[in-house]
Design a protein around this nucleic acid. Structure first.
Length: 426
RNA sequence: GGGUGGGUGGCAGAGUGGUUGAAUGCUCUGGUCUUGAAAACCAGCGAGCGCGCAAGCGUUCCGGGGGUUCGAAUCCCUCCCCACCCGCCA
């Protein structure tokens, strides 16, 4: 959400920012609406001032017992009444119209976000890890999983439909181990506070982080008007909504392991095989709330927190900085971590680490007092640390053996009761 | 599902129609005192919007919206939310 005052003072920069998002200029239209609104406010304020002053005199006249003067003044004020009412109504309408438009505009991109149309134009920042050489043709995860008899898409289809999976046996346990390990890592090593949030959320929360109003069709709405969380970014970030924090409380760092639910509307035909794109998946999320000066550094830190997970799991990956055409609606800047999948012979997104600046904070009305004691919007960041389902895919494909078994990464063995390898139980 | 009580500043909590943006306490800021700190004492401290170079002025805001009134935190209607009790239940 934008501050109209900022647009007023940065008209060209605002339109330029929209242009980077592929949107037509809107500053002129918005400022015209804003001008109208301010005219209304000005007239309204004047009318209110007159009304208030006169009403006060009425009170005084009555106190002095001068009924004649009082009733004369009352006649005066009643004329102002209609004027005030009209002005109030008009102001409300104009403000609502303005806010409706503002709430559908994407965040401004950071200056160092590269221009580009889509993910093909993302900028590779770094690579880590050796790509393993296999003396056989590496399989894709779903093939491995089905061969093990522990990944059941047919059963899932019967129970829930497409884009769901049933994991069984050691593979189910591996999924659980991954989630536990990552959450433990983020909370114990990286200073995030563990959170177990509600999975059903109010509209206001989704508005706060930017999923609503524009992307309602991407999430599941319940019959009582709540929403299944599409990511725990939503509850974790909204933890500070409508609050006034002290600067010395910042940064706040939260992490959670939750299922995420997405309708995947519009992605028909994409990633239909396997568990890369599901209606339900587990994710360890990191959220940070910072002051306005620390958010850039926090972004780098958070990326590092996600990268360490990859390193500890010994999964080869690369980091890309998303280009202008690929950065999400609510974000100023995003790094993706893409893991190497030998079965697919490509890198696939496994984590996304983003900086929202004060864009979400405005929507949530989340503020802190800066060193001058003045209220200021916090900055918010979020990142996956990392996506559990996709990590499962990555481990299966990277740790697969010629006989179809899956080696268990060292750091996970303790979470698997010491198990070193997952193989078919015959 | 049935019933009751509530939503006031950063927090707690008074306030039922007329200088109330709102007592009081806490927090916070500055000062006095102290070697320093604490305590004590003194002083200051809401947010948004508009106008203005600024100082400042005006206005709005006591959950949201509407209404009554010359005037609403205070009265009425409506919606939302919260708490508690009963019932049901993992």
């Amino acid at each position: 959400m934008f501050d109209i005052k900022w647009i007023r003072n940065n008209e060209e920069a605002f339109d330029a920012a929209l242009a980077r998002r592929g949107l037509a200029p809107q500053a002129a239209q918005l400022l015209a609406l804003d001008d109208e609104r301010r005219k209304t406010v000005l007239g309204l304020n004047e009318a209110q001032e007159k009304r208030n002053a006169t009403s006060k005199q009425i009170g005084q006249a009555k106190a002095q017992g001068d009924e004649e003067k009082a009733s004369a003044l009352m006649a005066q004020v009643s004329e102002l009444k209609a004027q005030v009412q009209q002005g109030e109504e008009k102001e409300r309408e104009q403000t609502a119209t303005l806010n409706e438009i503002l709430s559908t505009l994407p965040n401004i991109l950071a200056f160092d976000v590269p221009d580009g149309a889509d993910e093909d134009d993302n900028e590779e920042i770094s690579r880590w890890g050796e790509l393993k050489q296999y003396d056989f043709k590496p399989k894709e995860h779903y093939q491995l999983g089905e061969d093990l008899g522990e990944m059941d898409f047919e059963a899932a289809a019967k129970i829930a439909g497409s884009r769901f999976v049933v994991l069984k046996g050691q593979l189910a346990r591996l999924e659980r181990a991954l989630g536990q390990y990552m959450l433990d890592f983020q909370t114990q090593e990286n200073g995030f506070v563990e959170v177990m949030p509600p999975l059903l959320l109010r509209s206001e929360a989704l508005f706060g982080t930017g999923q609503l109003p524009k992307f309602a069709e991407d999430a599941f709405e319940t019959t009582d008007g709540r929403w299944l969380l599409p990511t725990s970014e939503v509850p974790l970030t909204n933890l500070v909504r409508e609050s006034m924090l002290n600067e010395n409380q910042l940064p706040l760092r939260f992490s959670a392991l939750t299922p995420c639910f997405r309708s995947e509307a519009g992605s028909a035909g994409r990633d239909t095989r396997g568990i890369i794109r599901q209606h339900q998946f587990n994710k360890v999320e990191m959220v940070a709330i910072t002051d306005s000066k620390s958010s850039q550094a926090e972004h780098e830190r958070m990326l590092n927190c996600a990268e360490k997970v990859m390193k500890n799991l010994d999964l080869p990956y690369r980091v890309v900085k998303l280009c202008s055409g690929d950065v999400g609606f609510s974000m100023q800047k995003t790094y993706d971590i893409e893991v190497w999948l030998p079965g697919q012979n490509t890198y696939r997104e496994i984590s996304s680490v983003s900086l929202a600046g004060d864009w979400q904070a405005r929507r949530m009305n989340a503020r802190y007092r800066n060193e001058n004691g003045k209220p200021q919007f916090v900055h918010t960041l979020n990142g996956s640390g990392v996506a559990v389902g996709r990590a499962l895919v990555a481990i299966m494909e990277n740790y697969q053996q010629k006989d179809g078994s899956i080696a268990v990464p060292k750091v996970l063995q303790a979470y698997m009761g010491g198990l070193k390898s997952i193989s078919k139980i015959s």
